[in-house]
């Protein structure tokens, strides 16, 4: 078999396994660690697609920053290993219905998708490199790019406003 293909299957197996372990593990810390592993395998997929920039940014933003904050918050929760299941049957049934619906929708969407045929003769393997990506973002997609950054800025200002100390309020 083609080494790239076998590597792809290995990576996909790892991705699905670690994603399943996120849901299955009882300990939330383990879940977070498996989620980090999932992000790593996803970055591996990006590298296989020759999108190195996306792979690096995925690691920096998700594995490096967001998951650290997840871990940070979960570490503060005092979790006992053998706590009782506090969920009633109703929640379980509702969760099963919601999850099943999402699965059916995703599966249907996947069935309906038509993949664009790729012509190996004209395909540019450098399309995922940072140079072409930057040119594309700053020329053809400049407006959406800037709007997205304004959205992030607004979110940041909002977070600062919420976190700000009110006048006369004391924390210690």
């Amino acid at each position: 078999m083609n080494p790239t293909l076998s590597f792809f299957y290995f990576l996909s197996f790892l991705t699905v396994l670690s994603a399943l372990m996120v849901i299955v593990s009882k300990n939330p810390i383990h879940s977070v660690l498996y989620l980090i592993l999932t992000f790593f395998t996803l970055s591996g997929h990006y590298i296989l697609l020759n999108a190195q920039f996306l792979a690096a940014v995925n690691i920096i933003v998700y594995a490096g920053a967001i998951m650290v904050l997840f871990l940070f918050v979960i570490m503060f929760l005092n979790i006992k290993d053998n706590h009782e299941e506090a969920k009633t049957n109703l929640t379980k049934i509702a969760a099963a219905i919601v999850g099943g619906t999402v699965f059916v929708i995703l599966f249907g969407a996947y069935r309906k998708t038509i993949l664009m045929p790729v012509d190996p003769a004209t395909f540019d393997s450098q399309v995922g490199m940072i140079e072409s990506l930057g040119k594309l973002l700053f020329r053809e997609y400049l407006l959406p790019f800037e709007l997205a950054s304004i959205l992030l800025l607004v979110a940041m200002v909002g977070a600062v406003m919420i976190g700000k100390r009110e006048i006369g309020e004391r924390h210690f």
Binding site: I59, I60, A63, G64
Partner: peptide, 8 residues
């Protein structure tokens, strides 16, 4: 970026 990711 790789270095930055590893540092993160």
């Amino acid at each position: 970026l790789y270095v930055f990711g590893v540092v993160a």
